[in-house]
Design a binder for these strands. Structure first.
Length: 601
RNA sequence: GGAGCCUUAGCUCAAUUGGUUAGAGCGCCGCCCUGUCACGGCGGAGGUUGCGGGUUCGAGCCCCGUAGGCUCCGCCA
């Protein structure tokens, strides 16, 4: 037996016993005579004490130990001397007096200290196996495991069956850029790694599985972000003979089970629901963070007849005038105002108008254009008080809402409305974080792509239109057609989305037509699906949740990299293994691939 | 494809307005230290200030370029 206990299990009741522990040297405290070693394994720490008078040979060897050496020690469990107990340690009442020490492996000088937060992410990624030893990341891996296990247990209890779908699959024209895998056996042809198991899970519904799920790896060859990696994991769910409510209920139950398992938190269900239109109207976002206020207020009524040209012309062009009131933000600095103006311009605004209310005075170059009536109406509608700062958006609906929505989030960060900076500074227990779950429903079915000059599916091409909007769909009033599609949002982060699918071949064909996919392409790209729909496809729908993002939020991390064992950096490089890498020319020859010459710069 | 911030010892950081030999803590090496728990004490090694160019009597600091990292926009059905 390699060890009899882990490093977090010895207690007073074990005193006098003979035990063997194994682990890493967490820290050494060498007094010249007596030497203390904190031995660490994944469960915790136990103090090991070497005394020259007990065993001079062992003590001499213990002097050579350094951080992260791997050792095995056997000996007697002893009570600590009175007054030297460590209440901060679960094993702090006892210590191990070894009679045997095996140095299993010595560690080089460490690339970075394991007990501090390294700033250099490059360095962390290069030595990822070492970084993962740090308690924070070790905890994250285990929280992730518990979340995944709770997912399987819960969905199993609801009758869902986990089915694996191919990683080597087929490229489709819609959606993200595919990762391609060349076929050796069929030269010149390629598999694609799945962006999601979307078609397979629908085909499983045709197959009569009825309730499917999978914790599935997905691949998208797009640029990365803190919450986006080339490969990521989805909790993928699909069910037959269901309505959106059925999907909502099972998702809510699953998330409650995950939060119970990971954090021992009871999540309140059912979650609130907001239509896409309301979400954008009130929060300027289809994934609103409702943990703070600053809601968007529509001012169309007030300025309909205004003599202020900027507002009036926006309204006359059937746009909107909206505003947010940042309470107590009149002290905004010039730098902050510049930054917010930049954000506004970046998202399509021509500029940013705002009013500071200081010393009872409305300070802004635009106030002089307002009538008394307009000012009074503004004051009451926005609840304007001393110290407030009001920001305006006057533009097309989409742009005005998005701009104010972005400002809203940034202002909340600047004002620290979630108290994160304070929590970090005080170092105190931040208390229970607030978990704001929200369903956003009734997404538009289509989205206009100016680049391609065509309509694209906002969710995906298999999403069904809302039944009541079918006449609009038939009439090709595409911008007005709503989809039977929904997103699940947690604290302003989109953690999942899904829809009811099209199960009628005729409707699917019309959808492809609307998306400008030729009949030939429909057959070559989606022929199998269309054929399947003709063989008794049941009504079905589902959802997919981003496991990485969900675990990131649960672990209070800022990046999904910190909840993945071996993530890639933001250029898609694995700095540890140095992938991607060149391959042997023979491998390319086998695949019938010839590299193009590098571009001359 | 674009924008912002960053890059000084193994790590985390400092270095006044451009001015002497680029410092500190931790780590590492050596010596001392018998109840610590981030043990302590003394000493030592360790630097092409990412790289290239420019301005200057003089550049870690100013300018230009470039590489890398992170964040964001585009992109992500």
């Amino acid at each position: 037996m390699f060890r009899t206990h882990d490093c977090n299990s010895l207690r007073k009741s074990d005193i006098g016993g003979q035990v063997t522990l194994a682990g890493w040297v967490n820290v050494t405290r060498d007094h010249g005579g007596v030497i203390f070693i904190d031995l660490r394994d994944r469960e915790g720490l136990t103090q090991v004490v070497f005394r020259p008078e007990e065993n001079a040979e062992l003590a001499r060897e213990a002097h050579t130990l350094r951080s992260e050496d791997v050792i095995q020690v056997s000996g007697r469990v002893a009570a600590r001397l009175p007054g030297t107990e460590n209440p901060n340690l679960a094993t702090g009442d006892v210590e191990l007096i070894p009679s045997k020490l095996r140095i299993l492996n010595r560690a080089d000088t460490l690339p970075f200290p394991i007990d501090a937060e390294p700033q250099n992410e490059d360095l962390r990624m290069t030595h990822r196996y070492f970084d993962l030893r740090r308690p924070r990341l070790a905890r994250n891996l285990r929280v992730r495991h518990r979340a995944a296990k709770a997912t399987r247990d819960y969905l199993d209890s609801q009758g869902f069956v986990e089915v694996e779908t191919p990683i080597l699959s087929k490229s489709t024209p819609e959606g993200a850029r595919d990762f391609l895998v060349p076929s050796r056996i069929t030269p010149g042809k390629f598999y694609a790694l799945p962006q999601a198991p979307q078609q397979y899970k629908q085909l499983l519904m045709v197959a009569g599985v009825e309730k499917y799920f999978q914790i599935a790896k997905c691949f998208r060859d797009e640029d990365m972000r803190a919450d986006r990696q080339l490969e990521f994991t989805q909790i993928d769910i699909e069910a037959s003979f269901v309505t959106p409510d059925d999907i909502f209920i099972v998702t809510e139950g699953m998330l409650a089970a995950i939060f119970k398992a990971a954090l021992n938190i009871d999540v309140k269900t059912p979650f609130d629901r907001l239509t896409y239109r309301d979400a954008v109207n009130r929060f300027g976002s289809d994934k609103p963070d409702r943990r703070f206020g600053i809601e968007l207020v529509d001012l169309g009524e007030i300025f309909r007849e205004s003599s202020f040209k900027v507002f009036r012309s926006a309204l006359d062009a059937s746009g909107v005038v909206k505003a947010i009131n940042a309470k107590g933000f009149a002290g905004i600095t010039i730098g902050q105002a510049d930054e917010l103006t930049e954000i506004a311009k970046l998202h399509g605004a021509k500029g940013l108008a705002f009013i500071k209310i200081e010393n009872g005075e409305w300070k802004s170059p635009i106030v002089k254009f307002f009538s008394e009536k307009e000012k009074t109406a503004l004051q009451s509608k926005l609840n304007i008080e001393e110290g407030d700062c009001v920001f305006f958006g006057a533009d097309k609906w989409q742009i005005a809402c998005e701009v104010l929505g972005r400002l809203r989030v940034r202002i909340a960060e600047i004002q620290d409305l979630l108290g994160r900076a304070r929590q970090r500074q005080s170092g105190s227990d931040p208390g229970a974080p607030e978990w704001d779950f929200l369903w956003v429903t009734d997404f538009p079915l289509f989205e206009w792509s100016p680049e391609e000059n065509k309509w694209n599916a906002m969710h995906h091409p298999f999403t069904r239109p809302k039944a009541e909007d079918m006449p609009l769909f038939e009439a090709k009033k595409f911008p007005d057609v709503r989809a039977e599609a929904y997103d699940i949002v947690l604290n302003g982060v989109e953690i999942g989305g899904g829809s009811m699918r099209i199960h009628e071949p005729e409707l699917q064909d019309k959808m492809f037509e609307a998306l400008g996919i030729s009949s030939e392409d429909r057959q070559s790209q989606f022929g199998h699906l269309l054929r399947a729909l003709r063989l008794g496809a049941p009504p079905h729908g589902g959802i997919a949740l981003g496991l990485d993002r969900l675990v990131m939020l649960i672990c209070d991390e800022q990046s999904i990299r910190d909840v993945m064992a071996f993530p890639k950096n933001n250029r898609g490089l694995d700095l540890m293994s140095n992938s991607p890498a060149e391959v042997d020319p023979r491998q390319l020859r086998d695949l019938g691939i010839k590299l193009a010459k590098e571009k001359n710069l």
